[in-house]
């Protein structure tokens, strides 16, 4: 079972693609970071919240045939690297798509879906997946 507190801390990123932006060099990080690895101590305590765009296009993809239990009902399925319209690279599952239609450059957007759960009596974890846009 995943830690409830850990999952809870990650909600802003998983629901709303909330990352962070370094106010010194302007670089955006997703998931959120407490410090910019480029600017290091210059950025300490100054990192700003940044909501990454939910729209983008497929940069690369792969088809998964052997899936963990919580996604086994959807197999085979596509996992994608998406470059968002603001230039951030995010990876995730691409759903509601015919696999033969998946291609590099395909416009997609992030939606909220069930990612997994801690069994039938446990917490349900929601997060982003991508769908064709």
């Amino acid at each position: 079972m995943a830690s409830i507190a850990k999952e809870w801390r990650e909600i802003p990123g998983r629901y709303n693609l909330e990352g962070s932006k370094c106010p010194v060099c302007g670089k955006v990080y997703f998931p959120k970071r407490g410090i910019c690895p480029e600017c290091r101590r210059e950025s300490l305590g100054k990192m700003e919240d940044y909501s990454v765009s939910r729209e983008g296009e497929v940069y690369s993809f792969s088809i998964v045939h052997e899936a963990p239990a919580f996604t086994s009902k959807l197999k085979p399925y596509a996992v994608v690297m998406v470059r968002t319209t603001d230039g951030i690279m995010i990876s995730g599952q691409l759903v509601d798509v015919n696999l033969e239609d998946v291609r590099i450059g395909m416009p997609v957007r992030a939606v909220l879906r069930r990612i997994s759960d801690d069994g039938p009596s446990g917490v349900i974890h929601y997060g982003y997946k991508f769908v064709p846009n």
Binding site: T71, L74, V95, L112, R113, R114, I115, I124, Y126, K129
Partner: peptide, 16 residues
């Protein structure tokens, strides 16, 4: 609904 959809995800999609 897809196996990864439920009332939370449907309501969120409509609300967004």
């Amino acid at each position: 609904p897809s196996p990864d959809e439920d009332v939370v995800t449907i309501a969120t999609e409509a609300a967004r």
